[in-house]
Computed example of a mutant assay.
Amino acid sequence: MTSLASRLRSARLYLCTDARERQGDLGDFLREAFAGGVDVVQIRQKDMDRDAELAALEVARSVATASRTGAPPIVCVNDSPRIAQAFAADMLHLGQTDGSAHRARRRLHEWALVGRSTHTPEQADEALADPDVSYFAVGPVHATPTKPDYVPVGLDLVRHAARIAPVGDVTSEPWFAIGGLHLGNLDEVVEAGARRVVVVRAITEASDPRAAARALSDRLGQAWADDPALASYALRSASLGL
């Protein structure tokens, strides 16, 4: 079976969504998103009851496991090492105020992945240097209602991440651009060096989540295909056991 680390390295499209309580369609929604090409999903809903969050995560894991032959999409827990431990999570994402990755990792299984949000070059540097961080996210690139207290960082942080962690370097940690991204502005982050992105409303508010995910995944796939540094990325990763 493909390792979690390998699945993360090959991931391009990462979706953050709430538990779809208002719509009542989390399973169906995720089924469509995964069919469209979403590689990672994070359930992110602030102040959610613990049992309700665990139930939503179980729905996500069940749908992910059934969605594809071979390696399924990765299901990620937001912020809480305690929830991640109770869920036996494969991946946990931490913000800047959520404690150390090392301490969080002690609650997770041996192969679990830990991500870190970064908003400045210094934070990106720290995440890259942290042996307990498996990937990092840079942003928010644009203003977004999901992070109203954060000032948009623009493309400079994306360019910085591309310099310190070249996407073609299989020994470097993967990273994702995040923040107000959609098909209409995807090219600018690709041109700045991103090959992996996190989206929210671009899929959660789409009338056809499968089509929205497919359009984003296809554009990112083309960016990978057009990038000479990524021509043999999968083969090099496999040869190093990554």
Rank of each mutant, 00 (worst) to 15 (best):
A202E: 00
P148E: 04
R103S: 13
G99Q: 03
E32H: 11
G70F: 00
R68L: 12
I74A: 07
Q123A: 11
L186W: 09
A55Y: 11
L128Q: 09
R61Y: 11
T69S: 13
L242F: 10
T65P: 01
H182Y: 05
H182F: 11
D90L: 07
E58A: 12
D187M: 08
E53I: 03
A64F: 03
A71L: 01
A52D: 04
R196A: 02
H142I: 00
M48F: 08
L216F: 06
V198G: 12
T2D: 06
P166N: 07
L15M: 00
A112S: 06
A165K: 07
I43L: 13
P81W: 06
E110N: 09
D132Y: 15
A194P: 01
G154M: 06
V141L: 05
S232D: 15
S237G: 08
H109V: 05
A192M: 14
A177Y: 01
W224E: 05
P145W: 09
L57I: 14
V75C: 03
D149M: 13
T17L: 02
A56H: 12
E191D: 12
A86M: 03
V114G: 13
V41P: 05
I74M: 11
V138A: 07
G95W: 06
S217W: 12
Q96F: 02
A101I: 13
G27R: 03
P152F: 00
S239C: 06
M91G: 03
W175L: 01
R159P: 06
A211R: 15
A88M: 06
G241V: 09
A206R: 01
V167E: 04
A35R: 10
K46I: 04
P121M: 00
F136G: 08
A5N: 04
S217I: 00
R22N: 13
A161H: 09
D169K: 07
A231P: 04
V133A: 10
C16W: 02
L128D: 01
A5C: 04
R159Q: 13
R196E: 07
S207W: 10
D47Q: 15
G139I: 02
A192C: 10
V158F: 08
G37F: 08
L230T: 07
L216P: 13
V38N: 08
E205D: 15
A223F: 00
D132L: 14
G24V: 09
P166G: 07
G115T: 15
D149Q: 15
V138I: 07
D25M: 02
V158R: 02
V190F: 02
A177E: 06
E53V: 05
H102Y: 09
A212H: 08
G241T: 10
Q45S: 05
R116L: 13
D18Y: 05
R106E: 10
A234E: 08
R210S: 09
